[in-house]
Amino acid sequence: MSKITPQLIGKTINALSYFQPKLAAKYAVKLFSTPQKGKITEDQRAFLNTAVHDTVNYKDIQIKTYLWGGSKDTVLLVHGWESNAFRWQDLIALLKAEDYNILAIDAPAHGDSSNKIFNAPMYSECISEVVKTYKPNVIIGHSIGATASIIAQENHNLPSVEKNVLLGAPSNLAISVKNYADFMGLNKKVRKAIDAYYLKYFKHLPSYYCAENFYKNNETQGIIIHDKKDKIISYREALDIKRHYKNAELIKTQGLGHRLKSDAVYQHILEFLKV
């Protein structure tokens, strides 16, 4: 998407807001919730076909699962926005070498899972169904996948989960919505309408999905890995999570960006799994 395109779309939505604010909010939320990337390429499929495939259903959404069997703890890998289970290829190789039982999923509207839209509350419900089915001991989540995993644990009884690894996780959905609105240049009228839309369809404002509400009761062990120069999710959000996640250690990286794909990160994860 070129730099000018979001501005033009934002101006169109702003203009619509003066006549039909609810419709303007609906369009804005739909754009925010519709991934443009994340489907599996043929190169990616060759690797994913080395796993045992299955699906877990949440309402009318089919969540694709990939299993690489092992004798040790079950580790669930949960990717973020506009990605799919292939993003874990390097970490999966390391986990297989240690004989962990590895489970990865495609999020709604990503990879080979169904649905056309994606949001954190929906993702959390899908994750809870996967956890109830496979009973993983550890969840490793990247970006919004990490946050959705914590929301799932707060909203559902998921006693099998003993450890969480949070990679570049956002601490507050309201910040993500604000960043999106700023990027699109949306006016105050549309922003208020977006809040009203979330309240109507998700029963909560975006600000409800924050570290204060979803980490304070979580008693699992955790590590929070976040890059100081992350341009997608600010390092300040990692500090916010650390304040509320009492059993977690914060590990700061430098120069890895939001993706956090590096041997150093993987070694932190492997050491944490052995504790």
Rank of each mutant, 00 (worst) to 15 (best):
M1W: 12
P6I: 15
L8K: 10
K11H: 03
K11R: 11
T12I: 06
A15I: 13
P21I: 06
K22W: 09
L23A: 10
L23K: 14
A28I: 00
A28N: 01
K30D: 12
L31V: 12
L31D: 02
Q36G: 09
K37H: 11
G38D: 09
K39E: 06
Q44M: 14
Q44K: 12
Q44Y: 08
N49W: 06
H53G: 04
V56N: 10
K59G: 00
K59R: 12
I63W: 10
W68G: 02
K72L: 12
K72Q: 13
T74I: 06
L77E: 03
E82I: 07
N84T: 11
A85S: 09
F86R: 01
R87D: 09
I92L: 13
A93Q: 10
L95C: 06
K96W: 03
D99K: 13
Y100P: 04
Y100E: 03
I102V: 12
A104F: 13
A107C: 10
A109H: 08
A109D: 12
A109L: 08
S113P: 04
S113N: 07
S114M: 11
S114T: 09
N119M: 08
S124V: 07
E125Y: 12
I127F: 11
I127D: 03
K132A: 06
T133I: 01
T133C: 02
Y134I: 09
K135F: 11
P136N: 09
P136Q: 10
P136S: 07
V138T: 13
H142D: 01
T147C: 15
H156Q: 12
P159K: 14
S160Y: 05
V161A: 08
E162P: 01
N164T: 05
N164G: 01
V165F: 10
V165W: 04
G168F: 07
G168D: 02
A169G: 06
N172D: 14
S176I: 13
V177N: 00
L186T: 05
K189P: 00
R191M: 15
K192S: 09
K203Y: 09
P206G: 02
Y208F: 11
Y215S: 03
N217W: 10
T220K: 14
G222P: 02
D227H: 09
K229H: 15
S234T: 09
S234C: 07
D240C: 03
I241E: 04
R243Y: 01
K246M: 03
E249L: 11
T253G: 07
L256N: 04
L260Q: 07
A264S: 15
Y266D: 09
Q267C: 04
H268T: 03
F272D: 01
L273M: 06
V275S: 15
V275I: 15
V275T: 08
